[in-house]
Design a binder for these strands. Structure first.
Lengths: 238, 238
DNA sequence: TGTCAAAACGAACGTTCGTGCTATATTAGG
DNA sequence: CCTAATATAGCACGAACGTTCGTTTTGACA
């Protein structure tokens, strides 16, 4: 439904759908589109550039989407699928509650650090690019980010329900802080190439969670490695 | 020195500078440019658009800069001047040490909330836009953001020297966290129009600073208003 | 093998982009 | 008042943009 017009209805392998060469190219297009867009932005993602990258004609490529905005929306959707596969999926292998909450934070950092997208977090970039321009793309990006925040928040309340996180902790506040640390790490890495940012974000998140964790919850968080403040080697990177 | 080439040295009304009609227009151009760029991005800042906004000809406007990149750099510089005037200046009225550190955080939030730039923090937007494209603009933006981080960091060590902040606090870590919270607030406000984000960032910053403040430093931070967890009104904004 | 729809193509459209050139106003100094 | 410098305008350029059109290639099935 979200995907454009001619998709097969998922499970009805009509004669038409069995072949479906177009679907394969469409997928290839979106794969490249996601990469380009994460580096150059969804507006910098140009149809000509995309076509030449894939050795296709502009018009042949264009026909798959019908408009630039549709291409952008499809690209956002493809990026979301990657995000779900690379972040949400793995994190959900952890048990519901604090373990999963931590996993969401941890895997997210790995997702940026491992350059799943060449330009860092796709949605952070898209959000920054479109937050000032009304339209379908902006709306969809905002929606997806709300999904993510809701996921964090739900994990928090589940951890509270399981008695792993104190009741006094405000889920919305905690969600905001964890997300801010994620954005901060992504930002520092993208702009300054600062890999330390991941360790810093990790430490801040852990510290924050430990502060509101109950004795039941505490063991679910990684152990504290305090071998750090011991040798404070003067040169601080730059 | 930082501002572009032919600015009058502030206080030396040379014959050349007295007239300087061009300088006035240049300033007017940059004022508009900063506004547009903060909303649409430095790349979306187009010469034609800028010219029509000011009822000028493209070429007449263009002559002031010589290239698009120069225009972008000049715009960044103009934005920096605004930032210094609106944030750094006011914050430096507070006394060196923890008071100033807090002032930097507080005034920064006000600067985004008060929409000094129409599109939120100019440099957060510019950083996100250019972090994937090498060039002079990207370098300058990164430099300016490092200036800001250095400012935060210096205030932290000054607060430590004054015995207002514990020696055990890692300045780089604290800088990262404060900056991340700023970015998080800006992001939430821009994308979701969420004004609560400022209060959340403020609370998180305060809490974080209180945790490392010494008994000497604590009174320098705003008092704790705990009228909040009392009436936890169910409806949480959306 | 012939048919037919899907898929890809090539060329062109009208705009807008950044950027030059050249000419005309506007202004200050002699 | 004249002159030289400065500031703005007019016009045109080549390239790239998103988009449309008519045509050709392709591949499954009768």
């Amino acid at each position: 439904m979200t995907t454009a017009g001619e998709t097969t209805e998922a499970g009805r392998p009509s004669a038409r759908a069995r072949r479906a060469h177009g679907e394969r190219t469409r997928q290839a297009i979106l794969e490249a589109a996601v990469d380009i867009a994460s580096e150059e932005g969804l507006e910098g993602l140009t149809i000509g550039r995309l076509a030449s990258e894939l050795s296709m004609s502009k018009s042949g490529l264009f026909a798959h989407f019908g408009s630039k905005e549709e291409l952008q929306l499809a690209t956002v959707e493809a990026a979301r699928a990657v995000f779900v596969r690379e972040v949400v999926g793995p994190a959900f292998e952890a048990e519901k509650g604090l373990a999963r909450l931590w996993s969401l934070c941890d895997v997210w950092l790995a997702y940026v650090r491992g350059e799943v997208f060449r330009g860092g977090c796709f949605f952070a970039a898209a959000a920054a690019e479109f937050d000032g321009r009304p339209g379908a793309v902006r709306d969809r990006v905002a929606e997806i980010m709300k999904e993510w925040l809701a996921l964090l928040r739900r994990s928090i309340t589940e951890a509270q329900a399981a008695g792993q996180l104190g009741r006094e902790a405000d889920p919305a506040q905690l969600t905001f802080e964890l997300n801010a640390l994620e954005m901060g790490a992504n930002w520092a890495f993208q702009l300054h190439g600062d890999r330390q940012a991941f360790a810093r974000a990790r430490e801040a998140m852990l510290e924050r969670l430990r502060r509101v964790a109950t004795p039941t919850g505490l063991p679910l968080l990684p152990a504290n490695k305090r071998a750090k403040a011991r040798a404070p080697r003067g040169g601080s990177k730059r």
